[in-house]
Nucleic acid binder design. Structure first.
Lengths: 218, 218
DNA sequence: CACCTTATTTATCGATTGAAAAATAACATC
DNA sequence: GATGTTATTTTTCAATCGATAAATAAGGTG
């Protein structure tokens, strides 16, 4: 009465290169949701293939994870970010607003943020490299441009100025974390959030660099 | 020739209450370092006891983890934080500087930050509750005090003002993450970092609330 | 159609996991 | 010092882990 029940599952037999990339892409989503401690069997199930097949394409789970990191981080890197910040044909405030609009469009992605946070907690090397890259290509250029704006020597950026830029940057960054990771209620107007942060940053930086209006109401 | 090799390890046989608390306290450090996926055997080894003993005190690994969360979060809660912010006998800027000095002293701890970040990624309920508590006891009071300072109705705090306070707050918070989790080089002068952030926050907020000095240099 | 390559599955291994059951020894009390 | 309680260890189990070896079938080439 029961049907013949063909046991052997259909095999799609994709060419190697595509298959490999498909595995990596879906592994990114999988590990971002479940964490890197999740099993290769769970991943294979989601992929619709058997678990040993993964080992045809990656020598070990760790190698697969490395490729996940590499792909995730590399794909978000836009080399023209620095140019957006240093393009003096526009006012600095406008440049920063535009940059953070674009930057947050790139990284405010649930998968990316989770991978970033996971890798940071694990002390993975690529996370450190990314943070260093941020400093070189974003934080330092921002402070340099601000010093230029205020007529100071760009070469002598102070540590507290860089720190101040970090605080603004990570404050904006964490808006995405609160929204997409903690799923908290945030201001829906992202542009407004950025403009307020950038404006306060420049106000505060000018106060630090060239003195100026105090803070108290008196 | 070999010595008698007494097999049975010495047993300390601590009273139940102390033992339990000792387990929780050391479990906090253990899971903060190794992550919550680490084995109960690894934990027992660090505790200097056998693994099944853990199950005398906690019905399951998950129950132990819950106690870890509870202990970590509860121990950091200082109910007088709100009072520090709302004590109008001092200028607001001074209050905020003092509050963030104390607050960061409390949470800039490698173990606490790691547990917080882990629990956030896992979507644990207590993390959400903590963030909501932050809003009620810190973020909203800050904005209310600022509105009072600028002669506005404290009851009509706008969403963008709360968001702006969040950005400053999380920017300060992330200074600790960069230093203790990413082990990045940060400005050693924490007080300076706080003062700059708070000053810029108040400058920016006054600009938002009552208008005032623009940002551009012209 | 025959043949070869290789993508994929089946089956399995040893290690490790959370957890339970049973044995044992430390301590309190009389 | 005998006795009962219970903290602790020893032993063990079933499930799951990453990984390997062998069997199988899909597809290309002649």
């Amino acid at each position: 009465m029961a049907e013949p029940e063909k046991k052997t599952a259909r095999r799609r037999r994709l060419p190697s290169a595509e298959r490999r990339q498909e595995f990596i892409n879906k592994a990114i989503d999988f590990f971002a949701e479940e964490g890197f401690e999740s099993s290769t069997r769970g991943l294979a199930k989601r992929l619709g293939v058997t678990q040993p097949l993964l080992y045809r394409y990656f020598p070990s789970k760790e190698d697969l994870i490395s490729e996940v990191y590499e792909t995730v981080y590399v794909h978000r890197l836009k080399p023209d970010w620095t140019e957006m910040i240093t393009d003096r044909s526009q006012p600095l405030e406008q440049r920063l607003n535009r940059f953070y609009e674009v930057y947050t469009d790139a990284i405010f992605d649930k998968t990316w943020l989770r991978i970033f946070l996971f890798s940071g907690l694990k002390g993975v090397d690529i996370n450190r490299r990314y943070v260093e890259l941020l400093r070189e290509r974003i934080i330092e250029p921002i402070v340099d441009e601000a010093r230029h704006e205020f007529g100071l020597d760009p070469e002598t950026a102070k540590d507290d100025e860089l720190e101040f830029a970090w605080v603004m940057h990570t404050g904006i960054f964490y808006y995405g974390v609160r929204k997409l990771i903690y799923e908290a209620t945030v201001l829906e107007d992202k542009t407004r959030m950025i403009e307020d942060a950038v404006a306060a940053f420049l106000l505060g930086l000018r106060r630090k660099m060239v003195g100026g209006s105090g803070t108290g109401p008196s």
